[in-house]
């Protein structure tokens, strides 16, 4: 069964022209000399002929093209996305995240007790997690709420900024 599948797979690759030159020669030889391969090849050739030449395309209604042309009459070609996506905004967002990550790393590293008495020599053993005082930065529920509100406001502001040029183009194209 597996051998049969493998034979079919290799024959399809040969027929699709996606096998290597070496494989191609080898399969050609097998088809010429081995009856089993020859029979399977003929069988698959018939199937390929059916799929390539006898599969029919369905046709939509006669009015289809007209319907499409009427439908597009109500629309305008939208400007290319690259024309209104401001690369500076994208780089700005990327920069913000990079700076945030770097800041967190700096704060984290400065909190590490490098002279910790860990027995192992690995990097993780040198870090004294107990000494990292997160409560200094996030010490109450109010601080959490405050940060959350800021994040939401920041995202709203960003959303408004990103939408602005798109709207301007949309209005421009309608005119």
């Amino acid at each position: 069964m597996n051998r049969q599948q493998n034979m079919e797979e290799r024959l399809w690759e040969y027929m699709d022209g996606v096998c290597s030159a070496e494989d191609r020669l080898f399969i050609e030889q097998l088809i010429a000399t081995n009856q089993e391969w020859k029979t399977k090849y003929q069988e698959l050739l018939e199937l390929q002929d059916l799929m390539a030449h006898h599969l029919e395309l369905d046709e939509p209604s006669m009015r289809f093209t007209q319907n499409v042309m009427e439908a597009i009459g109500k629309h305008h070609i939208a400007p290319a996305a690259k024309s209104y996506i401001n690369k500076r905004v994208v780089w700005g967002i990327a920069g913000f995240f990079m700076i945030s990550i770097v800041c967190f790393l700096i704060v984290g590293i400065t909190q590490v007790n490098w002279s910790g008495d860990g027995t192992g020599s690995s990097f993780l053993n040198k870090i004294n997690f107990d000494k990292i005082d997160v409560s200094k930065f996030f010490n109450s529920t109010y601080a959490g709420i405050f940060m959350m509100v800021n994040v939401v406001l920041g995202l709203m502001l960003l959303d408004m900024y990103l939408r602005r040029p798109g709207r301007r183009h949309e209005v421009g194209s309608k005119k």
Binding site: D58, A71, H76, A80
Partner: peptide, 30 residues
């Protein structure tokens, strides 16, 4: 239309999909 018919056996649905596709393509041609 033929590809749409592979998804739905209903010709009317397939035609609606095909029309929708051509409108979308037109709008995003740029």
């Amino acid at each position: 239309f033929t590809i749409a018919l592979r998804y739905t056996p209903n010709r009317e649905d397939a035609e609606e999909i095909a029309q929708d596709v051509f409108v979308k393509v037109y709008r995003s041609l740029a």
